[in-house]
Deep mutational scan, measured.
Amino acid sequence: MNLTVNGKPSTVDGAESLNVTELLSALKVAQAEYVTVELNGEVLEREAFDATTVKDGDAVEFLY
């Protein structure tokens, strides 16, 4: 899956889609429990991480 992460191209191997929690784990995001996630310009509530799917071509920003 090809994404733009914090403005840079990134690839997650072996996945066509992941939820936000899985993406944080796959990318080994440090202190993931404290990060705010913006997906395609929309800031996500932490409670929505498990239910929100990240797909090929999406833009993700991790805000600390």
Rank of each mutant, 00 (worst) to 15 (best):
M1R: 03
M1G: 03
M1D: 01
M1W: 05
M1H: 04
M1T: 05
N2W: 12
N2A: 10
N2V: 12
N2T: 14
N2E: 07
N2L: 11
N2F: 11
N2G: 06
N2R: 15
N2D: 05
L3V: 08
L3N: 01
L3F: 07
L3K: 00
L3H: 02
T4Q: 06
T4I: 13
T4C: 14
T4A: 05
T4N: 06
V5S: 03
V5K: 01
V5T: 01
V5I: 13
V5P: 02
V5Q: 02
N6L: 03
N6F: 04
N6G: 05
N6M: 05
N6E: 02
N6K: 01
N6A: 05
G7T: 03
G7M: 04
G7D: 03
K8Y: 10
K8A: 08
K8Q: 10
K8D: 06
P9E: 07
P9V: 08
P9D: 06
P9H: 09
P9G: 05
P9T: 08
S10E: 13
S10D: 06
S10W: 15
S10H: 15
S10V: 15
S10G: 07
S10R: 15
T11D: 04
T11M: 10
T11W: 15
T11Y: 15
T11K: 14
T11R: 15
V12Q: 03
V12C: 08
V12L: 11
V12W: 09
V12Y: 08
V12T: 04
V12D: 02
D13Q: 14
D13E: 13
D13P: 14
D13Y: 15
D13S: 14
G14I: 08
G14S: 09
G14H: 09
G14R: 08
G14F: 12
G14Y: 12
A15I: 11
A15M: 11
A15K: 12
A15V: 14
A15R: 13
A15G: 08
A15N: 08
A15S: 09
E16P: 10
E16N: 13
E16C: 13
E16G: 11
E16S: 14
E16F: 14
E16L: 14
S17E: 09
S17H: 10
S17A: 09
S17W: 11
S17C: 11
S17T: 12
S17P: 08
L18E: 00
L18G: 02
L18K: 04
L18I: 09
L18T: 04
N19Q: 04
N19I: 04
N19A: 05
N19P: 04
N19R: 06
N19T: 15
V20S: 02
V20K: 00
V20P: 00
V20R: 00
V20T: 01
V20H: 02
V20M: 10
V20E: 00
T21C: 11
T21I: 07
T21K: 08
T21M: 08
T21A: 08
E22Y: 06
E22N: 08
E22K: 09
E22W: 06
E22T: 08
E22F: 06
L23R: 00
L23S: 00
L23A: 02
L23W: 02
L23P: 01
L23E: 00
L24I: 09
L24K: 00
L24D: 00
L24C: 05
L24T: 00
S25A: 14
S25E: 10
S25P: 00
A26I: 14
A26G: 04
A26M: 13
A26C: 12
A26S: 06
A26N: 05
A26T: 08
L27N: 01
L27D: 00
L27I: 04
L27G: 00
L27C: 08
L27E: 00
L27R: 00
K28L: 07
K28S: 09
K28D: 07
K28I: 05
K28M: 09
K28Q: 09
K28H: 11
V29Q: 04
V29M: 07
V29I: 13
V29N: 03
V29Y: 06
V29L: 08
V29D: 02
A30Y: 13
A30V: 11
A30G: 09
A30K: 11
A30I: 11
A30E: 12
A30S: 11
Q31A: 12
Q31P: 08
Q31T: 08
Q31N: 14
Q31K: 11
A32L: 11
A32V: 12
A32S: 11
A32K: 10
E33P: 09
E33D: 11
E33F: 10
E33R: 08
Y34W: 13
Y34G: 07
Y34V: 11
Y34M: 10
Y34R: 10
Y34A: 07
Y34C: 14
Y34E: 07
V35D: 04
V35E: 03
T36H: 09
T36M: 11
T36V: 12
T36D: 06
T36P: 01
T36K: 09
T36W: 10
T36I: 14
V37L: 06
V37K: 01
V37W: 01
V37E: 00
E38S: 15
E38F: 15
E38M: 15
E38G: 07
E38V: 15
L39A: 01
L39V: 06
L39D: 00
N40Q: 01
N40R: 02
N40M: 02
N40A: 02
N40D: 01
N40E: 01
N40S: 01
G41Y: 04
G41E: 02
G41D: 03
G41M: 04
G41S: 04
G41T: 02
E42A: 11
E42P: 00
E42Q: 13
E42W: 10
E42T: 13
E42D: 07
V43F: 07
V43D: 03
V43P: 08
V43S: 06
V43L: 12
V43Q: 08
L44D: 00
L44G: 01
L44C: 06
L44I: 15
L44F: 05
L44K: 03
L44M: 04
E45L: 13
E45Y: 09
E45G: 10
E45M: 12
E45W: 08
E45D: 12
E45I: 09
R46V: 05
R46H: 07
R46N: 06
R46E: 04
R46A: 06
E47W: 14
E47N: 12
E47D: 12
E47S: 13
A48C: 12
A48Q: 12
A48S: 11
A48D: 10
A48G: 06
A48W: 10
A48L: 12
A48T: 09
F49N: 00
F49R: 01
F49Y: 12
F49C: 03
F49T: 00
D50Y: 07
D50E: 10
D50L: 08
D50T: 09
D50R: 06
D50N: 10
D50K: 07
D50H: 08
D50C: 08
D50S: 12
A51M: 13
A51L: 13
A51P: 03
A51I: 14
A51G: 10
A51Q: 12
A51C: 13
A51S: 14
T52N: 03
T52F: 06
T52D: 01
T52A: 06
T52R: 07
T52H: 06
T52S: 05
T53Y: 15
T53F: 15
T53Q: 13
T53A: 09
T53K: 11
T53R: 13
T53P: 08
T53N: 10
T53H: 11
V54W: 02
V54Y: 02
V54P: 01
V54K: 01
V54N: 01
V54I: 10
V54S: 02
V54D: 01
V54C: 04
V54L: 10
K55L: 06
K55D: 03
K55Y: 11
K55R: 12
K55S: 07
K55P: 01
K55N: 08
K55I: 07
D56C: 06
D56H: 07
D56V: 05
D56I: 05
D56N: 11
D56F: 05
D56Q: 07
D56L: 04
D56T: 10
G57P: 01
G57E: 03
G57M: 04
G57H: 05
G57T: 04
D58N: 02
D58F: 04
D58T: 03
D58S: 04
D58G: 01
D58A: 04
A59T: 14
A59S: 14
A59R: 14
A59Q: 13
A59K: 14
V60Y: 05
V60W: 03
V60I: 13
V60S: 03
V60P: 04
V60K: 00
V60D: 03
V60A: 02
V60H: 02
V60R: 01
V60G: 00
E61G: 07
E61M: 13
E61D: 12
E61R: 15
E61C: 14
F62T: 04
F62E: 01
F62M: 06
F62V: 11
F62Q: 02
F62Y: 07
F62H: 02
F62D: 02
L63E: 09
L63D: 07
L63R: 14
L63W: 15
L63F: 15
L63K: 14
L63I: 14
L63V: 13
Y64I: 09
Y64K: 06
Y64A: 07
Y64P: 07
Y64Q: 07
Y64C: 11
Y64H: 09
Y64D: 07
